[in-house]
Nucleic acid binder design. Structure first.
Lengths: 213, 213
DNA sequence: TAATAAACATACAGACTTGACTGTTTCTTT
DNA sequence: AAAGAAACAGTCAAGTCTGTATGTTTATTA
């Protein structure tokens, strides 16, 4: 795991340490919540000293602001990565696209994002820092999703269906994180929701007919 | 505002102070978030000393546990109150019922509940304390909602529609709290979702009368 | 009315977080 | 190779929260 620490460029050192700190911040947010995300914990998780953390992010606000960008970037990247293999069959494509959206709302990255959202509700600075970045991400999701579903992002029917899907996914993920102990329950609930959401997206070829009565 | 503080029963003093502390806890959760809900702040909001708070709730865990019950109780009570006047027209009834559900997911009580949910994700004790109370409340919502919609809670189609509606409402409320600055936007988004959800409930044309409970 | 117990107020000790400060190592430049 | 700059490590002081311990007021009871 020790990555050739003999001769690193300053730029390499900088970006590696910053990356470690930001990744540790995401881990801390996901595992300990926003309140539990303290600078000593982050430094420990990142494997760096408190001095290093203070050097790169003088105040905690700086660190959190950078973490917001980091989280948004990672989420967009993850979405783009999973956008790779989609079936060509329209109905199948919608189902898989919904599944990709669902999965993008699970795991540490989304948990970190949710911690930031909720914390931002009562923290003006944090909210302002989140607002622009988040709206960019939402636009990105909208754009990528259009590609995923094979639709025009501007079409009202698609926009409505996507908004409903996102709201449903967020609400389901929220409660899934709460239950915690039984993830299969949330997964089953999502499958039911997905079966319905699937029928709302305008498939260019054939309107998929559900097999269940 | 000083309510005849001359001759109060010990029971009165006790319940009034406890109530003030618990209400202050809800306010603190809604306005300052879970992390910002400190015992000194609660005491100040409640207008009592820290000693009084410590007397009634020796540890913060005790206070939070009581607050959970308090929040759940208030939410159930609020739902029951708004259940009062529902139109008899089936379609109208569904629309209003959805609106009642939506409104029950806005305001300080829901915000406090959401803070508790998110905090519970990374706090085992809190999660266990929430789990039972929350599942009771969910059951209550399910039961009350059946009355609201005029359906049988056991009917699969109704259960599915209600689950979807709740997930959608939670997801929309989550982002509405985030946006913060523009509540009308969330309201408009909700109206679009409502228009669709409305069509999912079997009571719109009362197509099937279930006989078995 | 006096005694007792509960409710309430104030003061304090320990633990923790943040931000700042000082010293050391590593890289770059000449 | 030497000087300077950046990255990094460790420590300290100020402030806050929690829990507790002690003193005071209010209500009940004898």
């Amino acid at each position: 795991m020790t990555p050739a620490t003999h001769h690193r460029t300053q730029e390499q050192r900088r970006s590696e340490t910053r990356g470690a700190i930001l990744d540790a911040t995401v881990t801390a947010l996901a595992q300990h919540g926003y309140a539990g995300t303290t600078t000593p914990l982050i430094a420990e998780l990142a494997g760096v000293s408190r001095g290093a953390q203070a050097h790169h992010f003088p105040t905690k606000a700086d660190l959190v602001a950078a973490a917001i960008q980091h989280v948004a970037g990672c989420r967009a990247e993850q979405l783009l990565r999973e956008l790779g293999d989609l079936p060509s069959n329209p109905a199948e494509r919608v189902r898989v696209a919904l599944e990709v959206l669902w999965h993008s709302h699970r795991g540490p990255l989304f948990e970190a994002a949710m911690e930031l959202w909720v914390a931002a509700r009562t923290d003006t600075e944090l909210r302002q820092a989140l607002a622009e970045t988040e709206s960019d991400l939402i636009r990105g999701i909208r754009f990528y999703s259009a590609a995923l579903f094979g639709s025009d992002p501007e079409e009202p029917r698609f926009a409505r269906a996507l908004d409903l899907a996102l709201a449903t996914i967020r609400g389901t993920a929220l409660m899934a994180n709460l239950a915690g102990d039984d993830p299969s329950q949330a997964e089953r609930e999502w499958l039911r929701h997905r079966d319905h959401l699937q029928t709302l997206f305008p498939t260019t070829e054939q309107p998929s007919r559900s097999t269940a009565p």
